[in-house]
Design a protein around this nucleic acid. Structure first.
Length: 642
DNA sequence: ATAGGGTTAG
């Protein structure tokens, strides 16, 4: 150590040759600085922090290594105030340039301060310091780019900073690319950035790859993500997690689970992130049994809230409220998402009163609701016909919780009023709201009109939808049928022609059912399932049994112009009926039959399921895109109100 | 001194 402070013997060749680095002359540090440095290494750290203002007042500069170490400690302990204190020392007497210049490791200090501000979410402070720095290197730029890419609503800025750094002559590295790829808002930008990574030879970096996969998937380009994944030779766990998450999030639960199996074959074991995505895949496919298996692995991670929330949601969306509630009460911590999940889960499963009780409990525990919580609360009101409560929550959410009602909340209100048969009020609500109504709102109104058989208003809503989305086939079909019902044949003919001209095809109804951890898909009118013959036999048997209970096919649910026999045939092979028949054929023990479908259940299938639950003495649970139907002993949890 | 993957609604 001592030699550091001695001038090197200039005239002795051996000595100069031995040291490859130039040796600087340095005076011994001021005693206060020496104490400060020691405190930064050995602690107590508050004492080191307390010393900073005195050092600055005495015009003394703390050494960069110690300061950087202190900044890191502030980040670790979450003490942003202390971070600011260090920043003040750095800026005292105009010394910022010393702590952000290239030589002597000074820039490490400023970079760590920028990073500190970013980690505390104090982005504007980070940017202010960034602007004041006389020099910036790739780390400085990357820190800011990453912070902007991760903050919501500032993705374009992240891209602008990337361009600016490029122009400033600082080349992005793998850190920069892996951060900025998440900020791509369009396929074009992503393609350009992907090309850049190739050009600078960084596209084989695993961090860059996993970000690429994630970016493609988030933009809905599953094939793009898959291509990057397939091209990889060495994958790590995060890469696997990225692709699995991408599939799970885009609704391909089967694909996600297949990849998960491959991941295990490749010798990786799941971590919390993997399990969360696998649970989401199970949730999407209503794979309760598979989800339960995952639950066994979740037990190791008792403190992981995200994972537990995913598990909770899986039980809710698989219609198993007993499991959901048991888990909810056992969870060591609960955050807004846990509460929101439970509230929506109860509401969707027809337990609105309980959902509102849980909401009260949430408030009494001091957890602040967010806008998604309020969607669940309003949903609960609307599906229980609690018009007054709904109005109350809608009107007071701003004042009570500081949440401004947005589009989704207005939509809930239209649903609330419409469902309750207050169609005029719903229309009035749409007219008076401060937002321009979109197709979603009109579709909600349309649903209410159908429920309450209000033909004229339905046609009005359908026309509004078609103004905004001319290809909405549901609205088009409904409009044609309304005209037909009203015997307005010219209009009906015009509407049918419009459909033919657009070559519109109805999205086929699909139902999924899990059997022994495999998912079987049924498509309306498609008899290509390997067991189709026996399924048709079983369907006939069920129809025979429920006919005795009064079942008559309700052909008005076929929105096509066909002969009655053809309509009956179409009805008979609705996907959920086939799935129910498949379920009753393979029924074991007293387990409910669980089915998920992509469209909302039609009135005929609803009646069918109710009667089958009675004739077969078995519970049937059907999840449609919006809510659940628990059929038991001839009745449904939705109270025939959906 | 800088980086990638996971949860609620519609």
């Amino acid at each position: 150590m001592k030699s550091l402070f001695k001038r090197p013997p200039r005239n002795r060749l051996a000595a100069t040759r031995r040291s490859s680095r130039p040796v600087h002359t340095q005076p011994p540090p001021h005693p206060s600085l020496a104490i400060f440095s020691r405190l930064c290494v050995e602690g107590p750290f508050p004492a080191a922090l307390a010393l900073l203002p005195d050092l600055a007042a005495a015009g003394l500069r703390a050494d960069p290594v110690s300061l950087t170490r202190l900044v890191k400690l502030c980040v670790r302990h979450g003490t942003a105030g202390d971070g600011r204190l260090i920043h003040r020392h750095v800026e005292a007497h105009g010394q910022l340039s010393h702590y952000s210049g290239g030589a002597g490791g000074g820039i490490f200090v400023s970079n760590s301060l920028v990073s500190m501000y970013a980690k505390f979410g104090l982005l504007d402070d980070a940017l202010r310091l960034f602007d004041r720095m006389p020099e910036r290197n790739v780390v400085t730029w990357t820190t800011v780019v990453a912070a902007l890419a991760n903050a919501d609503g500032r993705k374009e800025e992240a891209l602008r900073f990337l361009v600016a750094m490029w122009r400033d002559g600082v080349a992005p590295n793998a850190y920069t690319f892996s951060s900025v790829l998440g900020a791509c808002g369009t396929p074009g930008v992503l393609a350009a950035l992907h090309a850049s990574t190739v050009k600078v030879g960084l596209d084989s970096d695993v961090f860059v790859r996993s970000s690429l996969i994630d970016a493609y998937m988030k933009l809905g380009d599953l094939d793009g993500g898959r291509r990057v994944f397939d091209e990889m030779v060495t994958r790590d766990l995060v890469v696997w997690n990225s692709i699995i998450a991408g599939f799970a999030q885009s609704g391909d639960g089967v694909g996600a689970i297949e990849l998960f199996m491959r991941m295990k074959d490749a010798g990786f074991s799941a971590n919390q992130g993997t399990l969360t995505s696998v649970l989401r895949a199970c949730t999407g496919m209503v794979m309760l049994e598979a989800g339960r298996q995952v639950h066994a692995h979740v037990l190791k991670y008792e403190r992981d809230l995200i994972l537990h929330n995913a598990l909770l949601d899986m039980y809710c969306k698989c219609g198993s409220l007993e499991d959901a509630e048991a888990l909810f009460h056992r969870m060591p911590q609960r955050d807004v998402i846990s509460w929101s999940t439970m509230i929506s889960g109860l509401a969707q499963n027809g337990k609105s009163a309980e959902a509102l009780r849980v909401f009260d409990l949430m408030k009494s525990e001091g957890v602040a609701p967010n806008r998604i919580t309020m969607v669940g609360v309003l949903f609960a009101c609307s599906h229980a016909g609690l018009v007054e409560d709904g109005w109350y929550y809608f009107r007071s959410m701003k004042k009570l919780f500081g949440i401004q009602p947005e589009r989704e909340h207005h939509n809930c209100m239209v649903d609330l009023l419409g469902r309750a048969g207050k169609l005029d009020e719903a229309v009035e609500f749409i007219r008076d709201m401060n937002l321009e109504p979109d197709a979603v709102i009109w579709r909600t109104l349309l649903g209410a009109c159908r429920m309450h058989k209000s033909g004229n208003l339905a046609a009005y809503a359908a026309r509004e939808i078609l103004k905004l989305e001319p290809d909405d086939q549901g609205a088009r079909v409904l409009l044609s049928n309304t005209y037909a019902d009203l015997r307005q044949w010219t209009d009906a003919e015009k509407s049918w022609k419009a459909m033919r001209d657009r070559g519109m095809k109805k999205e086929p109804g699909r139902s999924w059912i899990e059997l022994e951890k495999h998912v079987h898909v049924f498509i309306a009118g498609d008899l290509s399932h390997p067991c189709s013959d026996t399924i048709v036999q079983e369907l006939n048997r069920l129809i025979g049994r429920i006919s005795a209970l009064g079942y008559v096919p309700q052909t008005e649910f076929v929105l096509q112009d066909l002969a009655i026999e053809q309509k009956e045939d179409l009805l008979k092979y609705h996907s959920e009926k086939m799935a129910i028949a498949f379920g009753t054929m393979h029924a074991v023990g007293g387990k409910p039959i669980r089915i998920m479908k992509n469209l909302r259940i039609c009135g005929d299938c609803h009646a069918f399921a109710k009667l089958v639950s009675k004739s077969e003495g078995r519970m049937i649970i059907i999840r449609d895109p919006v809510r659940f139907h628990h059929f038991q002993d001839g009745a449904c949890s939705c109270g025939d109100y959906w």
